[in-house]
Design a protein around this nucleic acid. Structure first.
Lengths: 403, 403
DNA sequence: TTGAATTTATCCGTGTTACGAATTAATTCT
DNA sequence: AGAATTAATTCGTAACACGGATAAATTCAA
C-alpha cells in the first residue's frame, strides 16, 4: 500500500495536469482548471514546475489570436523534445522499430522483413538490438537521449516481469526478453503484448480517446486481445496479458478447440488449399472467396463464427461499449466479418444485446510505435493509481516484536 | 475525476486505518503503524477521530496482559454497535434476511421458504419489505438504526444503478429493485449478484483474506460468478456483474449453448429422470450417480465438462491464484468435480497450467448476510479508490466560453 | 492616444495534513 | 523506590490546495 502524504497528493494532481495537456492539445491554464477542477493557484504552481522540468513548453508562435478581450491565454503543450522513446514490434515475419518524441510523433522508423519465428531468441535479440541502435542513430540521437524502449509482440506476456511466457515468435517459453534487452541496450526495456500497445495508442491518440472501456481484437497470423477497463489496461493477476488464442471455443475434439487453432490466419489458411510459405496466401484466399470458392468461404465463415463466440463471451464479461476488430487482411473481408457479427448477435444474452458496438479499424504501422511510446511515457508522468490499493497483507503481525 | 486535496489524503489514510483494524482483529496503535506504514502521529490522530465518531472502541477488558515491559498497548476494535446492516438473499425458493452489526456478526436471521420465482416483482418486494421489518424488530432495533440494506440475488445485476437486468427470480427484465425497496424502507438499499456477496465475504472474513485475486463460481439452481481482481470486485463497464450462465461454451446447436443451460442444477436435472418439483431432485440424482446410474453420471459429467471449459477460459483471462467452486449439492460430488478438474487441466494453456488452485468450499447461510454487510460497510468507511481515475473527458473544451 | 473594461496568471495568507523529535504515560524489572 | 522499557501524545516544521487580492496583458471606446 502507499500511504497518502503531500507527495502523493502532488503526484496525483501533476498527473491530472499532464494528462489534460496531453489530451487537449495546446491548452491554456484556465482550460486546465476547467478540465481538472483544480484551482487556478494549483494549476499555476504545477505548470510552473513542469515548465521548469522542461516537460511542457509554452506555445508562443504568432499564437492563435483568439479575438478575446483580456489578457491572452498562454497555450501549453507537451515538450516534444522532453524525451525520446523507441517502440519495437515483433511480428512473425517482420521487425519494426520506430523512434518517437515525447508527443509520440514518429521521428524515424525502420522495418526488417525477417522471419524471426525461425530464429533463436539470441538471434532475435541481436536483430532487435541492432535495429534499435541503427534507428536511434538515423534519428540523430544518442543512446542516452532515449528514455526507454518498449517491445510489443504476440502471445502471453507478463509485463510486470518483462517475461514472454509464450509466443509464436519464440520457440522457448518464459523468455526474459525485457531483461535481456535492457542488459544489451543499457536503457529500460519493457515488453507487452502487441494488442495492448494498440489499445493504449487508440486510447491516447486514436478515436477511443473518450472511451474508458473497449476491447481490441487483432486477427493476424495469431490472435491478439487487449482489454481497456475503467480507463486502464486490464491485465491478469500477475500482470499477465491474456491471449485470445488460448480461449477455448468448443470442447476439443467434436470440431472445437483452441480459438487460435480455429480463427487465426494460419488456421484459416491451413483449412484451404491456398497455403503458401510466403505472405500472399491470405490475399489469394480472400480473392477466391470473393469469387465464390466454397472451401474458402467456409473457412472464413468458420473462423468468424469461432471468434464471434469468443467475442460474445468477452462482451458478457466486460460489457464494453465498443469492440474494435483489426487485422491486415481477414478483418476487412465481409466473408469473415458477417458470420462474426451474426454469431455475436445470436449468442449475446438479451440484457447485453445493445451495449457493444463492433467496429473494424485498420491502422498503419506507426500505431505500434505510438502505443509503445505511450506505454513508456505512462511511467514517466504515470498516474500513481494502484499505488493506492488495499494493504498487501503481511503474513501476520507479531503481537510483540522482540528486540 | 477527483482532485487530490488534503481531504482525500485524510480519507485514504483513514480507510487504511479502518481496514487494518477490521482485518487484524483487536489491534494496538503501534501495530497499525506497522501495517499501514503511517507515522505514529498520524495513526494517533486518526484513531482519536474514529474513537470520537464511535466507529471503534478501546478493548479495555482485563486485556491480554501480554507480559511486555513498558506501557501496555490499548487494543482497538471496530465498535460492533456503530451501525447495523441488513442482508437479504433471494434464491428461487427462499428469502433469507439477516441483521448484522458493524463487525458483520449476524444478530438475527429469518428464512422464508417461498417460491418467489413464481411471484410478481411487487409481491416479492412486499415479502422482502415485511421480512426486513420483522427481522429488524426481532433484533430489538428500529428502522433508523439501520445504515443500509443489501440484497443479493442471482442473475445480471447492475450494482451502480440498483437495477436487476435479468434474473431467474424475476419474470421481467430491468427491474429497479434497489430504488423500489429504498422507497419502501426509507433506508438505502443496494443490490448485487449473490456471487459477488460471497466473494466479498470471503475476502473480508473468509479464507481468501490474504488473496487479492480469485474467482467464485457458484453452482446451484443457476450459475453465479464473481471475480475479485486486484483486491476489488470486478464489474463490467457499467457496474454490471457478469453472469456465468450467459457464457457460451460451444456454438449453439451442435450440442452446445449457454452454459446456464448445460451446467446448472436445473439443466442437469432436466437431462435425467430425477426431476421433481420440490428441491429433493438433486439429492436423488446424486445418490443415483453414486449407485452407478449411467444417465445421472453422464449428466453430471457433461455439466462438469461444460463448466470446466468456461473456468479454463476465465483462468486464461484473469490468471487468479485460486478458483473457489461452491454450491449446495453438485459441487460436493466427485462425479461433477472430477470431469470439471480434468477439463480445466486439459484446456488450460501450458503457460497457465499451474497458476490456479481449484478448491471446493461450502458455506452456511450467514455468509450471504456477512457479504451484504461488507458491501454496505464498504460504503461507510469505503476506500476512495476509483474516485481517482482519469478524467471523464468532457465533450470538448470551448476555446472561450461566452458569458 | 488614453483610459476603462476584461480576461489571464500570480502572489499572499490560511487551513489541513503528515511527519520527526521530544515529551508524557504506564507498565515491569531490579 | 528507582531504572528501564514500551506506548501514545504533543509540539514544531514542511508541503500542499485553496480563496481572495493583486498584477499583467490585452481589447474596446471615446
Amino acid at each position: 500500500m502507499k500511504t497518502a502524504d503531500p507527495e502523493l497528493m502532488r503526484a496525483i494532481n501533476r498527473f491530472h495536469v499532464m494528462d489534460a495537456i496531453r489530451r487537449h492539445g495546446p491548452v491554456s491554464r484556465v482550460q486546465i482548471c476547467q478540465v481538472t477542477e483544480l484551482s487556478a493557484t494549483t494549476v499555476s504552481a504545477i505548470t510552473a514546475a513542469l515548465l521548469d522540468d522542461r516537460l511542457i513548453t509554452p506555445l508562443q508562435l504568432g499564437a492563435v489570436r483568439d479575438a478575446g478581450r483580456g489578457r491572452p491565454r498562454v497555450m501549453l503543450q507537451l515538450n516534444p523534445d522532453a524525451a525520446y522513446v523507441v517502440g519495437v514490434r515483433l511480428a512473425p515475419d517482420q521487425i519494426t522499430v520506430a523512434v518517437t518524441n515525447f508527443c509520440a510523433d514518429v521521428l524515424h522508423s525502420l522495418s526488417l522483413p525477417i522471419r524471426i519465428d525461425r530464429q533463436s531468441v539470441a538471434v532475435t535479440a541481436d536483430l532487435v538490438e541492432d535495429g534499435v541502435r541503427r534507428c536511434i542513430e538515423d534519428a540523430d540521437l544518442e543512446m542516452p537521449d532515449v528514455l526507454g524502449v518498449c517491445v510489443g509482440l504476440p502471445g502471453v506476456v507478463e509485463w510486470s516481469a518483462g517475461v514472454c511466457r509464450q509466443s509464436p515468435i519464440f520457440g522457448d517459453r518464459d523468455v526474459p526478453f525485457g531483461a535481456e534487452l535492457t542488459r544489451r541496450l543499457g536503457v529500460p526495456v519493457s515488453i507487452d503484448s502487441d494488442a495492448n500497445l494498440v489499445a493504449l495508442a487508440e486510447h491516447w491518440f486514436g478515436q477511443a480517446r473518450d472511451l474508458n472501456d473497449f476491447l481490441v481484437v487483432s486477427v493476424e497470423r495469431s490472435l491478439g486481445l487487449a482489454i481497456l477497463h475503467n480507463g486502464e489496461l486490464f491485465r491478469g493477476a500477475n500482470g499477465l496479458s491474456p491471449d485470445l488464442g488460448d480461449l477455448v471455443v468448443r470442447a476439443p475434439g467434436n470440431g472445437g478447440g483452441r480459438l487460435g487453432d480455429m480463427a487465426s490466419e494460419i488456421s484459416v489458411l491451413g483449412e484451404s488449399d491456398a497455403a503458401l510459405p510466403s505472405g500472399r496466401g491470405m490475399a489469394i484466399l480472400l480473392r477466391k472467396a470473393d469469387d465464390g470458392d466454397k472451401v474458402c468461404l467456409a473457412a472464413l465463415a468458420a473462423a468468424g463464427e469461432a471468434l464471434g463466440c469468443a467475442v460474445a463471451n468477452l462482451i458478457t464479461l466486460f460489457a464494453p461499449p465498443k469492440v474494435i476488430i483489426t487485422g491486415r487482411a481477414m478483418a476487412s473481408s465481409v466473408h469473415f466479418m458477417r458470420p462474426l457479427r451474426e454469431t455475436v448477435a445470436a449468442l449475446l444474452p438479451p440484457s447485453l444485446a445493445d451495449v457493444s458496438d463492433l467496429v473494424v479499424r485498420e491502422w498503419d504501422d506507426s500505431i505500434w510505435a505510438r502505443g509503445a511510446a505511450a506505454m513508456t511515457l505512462r511511467e514517466l508522468y504515470g498516474a500513481p493509481w494502484g499505488t493506492t490499493g488495499p494493504a498487501p497483507l503481511r503474513a501476520s503481525i507479531e503481537l510483540r516484536d522482540e528486540a
